[in-house]
Amino acid sequence: MVAIVDYGITKFGKRKESIFELAKEATEKLLKYEIDYVIVSNSYSGEFNEMSGISSLLTTYLNLDTVSSLRVDITSGSGGSAILVAKSLLEAKEANTVLVLGVEKMSEKKTREVTKIISTLLPAEERIASLPSLASLSAIEYMKRFNAPRESIAQVAVKKSL
């Protein structure tokens, strides 16, 4: 079995800091450990931040230049899959102390551009739909099939704001 032994987190929202500065803020108190593998969970650094090889760029920025790293991207499932990869590396004894770092900097692009970029997770011939419109389709079908009141769906957001 493996276990999480420490963590770091930034405030979320529209941040003025770069993707590197956000990563540094989240990892600041974790770099005292002898990290020997870095797994970066990130989906859109190419599209949102115009960069490639983000895991290497991040290890360099964090002064972990010689530490192996890789990026895990399966859109919304990236974080969970990054944990699975870290667990597998530890269990295979390929690594002893793994840093899993999730980071995304979305606000550099306009909403319209962000929506368009995210919709590229759909096959090319179906990109007429946006992800919000697919969620709407689910909501419409749900209300129709189960005779659910519109308010009951919005209650989820009410609960989150409590």
Partner: peptide, 17 residues
């Protein structure tokens, strides 16, 4: 308000055996 906002942020964990 029924959608997550477009957001920036980071989180990190250390995992060991």
């Amino acid at each position: 308000y029924e959608f997550t906002p477009i957001s920036d942020g980071a989180t990190a964990i250390v995992i060991v055996r």
